[in-house]
Write a protein that binds this DNA or RNA. Structure first.
Lengths: 222, 222
DNA sequence: TCGCGATTCCCCCGATCCGGGGGGTTGACG
DNA sequence: CGTCAACCCCCCGGATCGGGGGAATCGCGA
């Protein structure tokens, strides 16, 4: 963990020579970051990290020998204290999610001015999650869509008019448990559980247990 | 849609008088936003929007008569061109997701300086999704967790060593379709499908069709 | 007070499923 | 050229499922 009194020790992984030099030159104007490692590909970065003391990595995605996502995964596994910030031209949701899942702390687009990149590096070194505006917008859209779908599913589930007991039985049924096991766990007769499942099938408009499990999953149960 | 030549027309919904006045005073120093509507609760905001021309709303969450989330939902439904930016002390993921699902364009925490709030309002008026650093961090964490879980599920699915045909059958089975229907759709004999499902049950380590559907859902199929 | 829905329990029966078993053909890979 | 995995087909018996009845109790609101 760096403290505020010394510059953040930075590694840069970028295969394109011109972009790399341009980035290094622009970073050179800032005294609060110090580039201590430069790598033309992911493998070189991982090798270099074995000896260099690094706080933050600025990571390109498209690189030979070991791409940015795989390199991020390797760094996150072997040096969990190192914060990786992606710096790339790709702004699609899949790529962003992939990088974050691999363990990236932040995600910047390459058109950011140097001040923003430096601020992001400092933020990441303090445990923050710096993202470009456009990336934040993508994340917001993703969460919005997911959450709206979840709420809509819950609303449709409510609209089915299930009783409390039916909902309870459905929740267990949704996990793949058989009727007799449900009966045991709810202290009911097998006949009673079958009676409830019959009502459930009618209300869910399904005719097989498997379809009921599927429907329950679609409604967000389990 | 506002253009750059005129100030952004802003509405403020905040029930706490002192906070509201403080916010209005601080916003007053900026010429690129103009507060055209002030409401002490969600209902008053919605009523006011019927007559006022507003580009962006700064919305508190805890308010009487109509809370910020419900008000956001109402605004998003009736005036989809109006961008709502939450401005609140709540920073928990559930609250953030709820607000975004309701249609909020951005989400700011109340300790932001006035410059940041104004910049966020301008961003929102241009279709952006302004979020405080801490909120971005929460969104990143959420996406990271989800995506990592998804990838892990896919990895475990691969580890099962299903054949292409089995995977195909499982995908259909997971939707609740019966064996004979699977046979029809894949141009197979019922016996063949049953043969595949037997292998699937063994590899998935389940003993009922319902549990298989459940397992498939857990592995991210469907 | 009356009725209605929710909950619980029970019976029956045909269709389907589950888990064994058995084989045959093809194609890839050593 | 063998062999092994994948794919396909078949049989059967016991268990379960799905759908059809009916009935008693209880609580809550009309």
């Amino acid at each position: 963990m760096p403290d505020a009194s010394r510059p953040v020790r930075l590694a840069v992984a970028e295969d394109h020579p011109a972009l790399r030099e341009s980035l290094l030159r622009r970073l050179g104007f800032f005294s609060d970051v110090e580039v201590v490692l430069v790598a033309p590909d992911g493998q070189a970065l991982v090798d270099g990290l074995a000896t260099a003391q690094v706080d933050v990595v600025l990571m390109d995605i498209e690189m030979p020998t070991l791409d940015g996502v795989a390199a991020t995964e390797a760094v996150a596994r072997r040096w969990p204290a190192v914060a990786v910030v992606m710096l790339t031209v790709f702004e699609d949701e899949a790529r962003i999610a992939e990088a974050l899942a691999a363990g990236a702390a932040g995600y910047l687009l390459k058109d950011e001015p140097a001040e923003t990149i430096v601020a992001a590096v400092l933020d990441a070194s303090r445990g923050g999650a710096p993202v470009s505006d456009h990336v934040a917008s993508t994340l917001v859209r993703r969460v919005r869509t997911q959450e709206a779908a979840r709420r809509d599913a819950a609303r449709r589930l409510d609209a089915l008019g299930l009783t409390a007991r039916e909902r309870e039985v459905l929740t267990m049924l949704a996990t793949g448990v058989a009727d007799d096991a449900i009966a045991d766990q709810l202290y009911l007769s097998l006949h009673t559980v079958q009676s409830h499942t019959k009502s459930l099938f009618r209300k869910l408009d399904v005719h097989t247990r498997a379809a009921a499990v599927r429907a329950a999953a679609d409604y967000g149960l389990g």
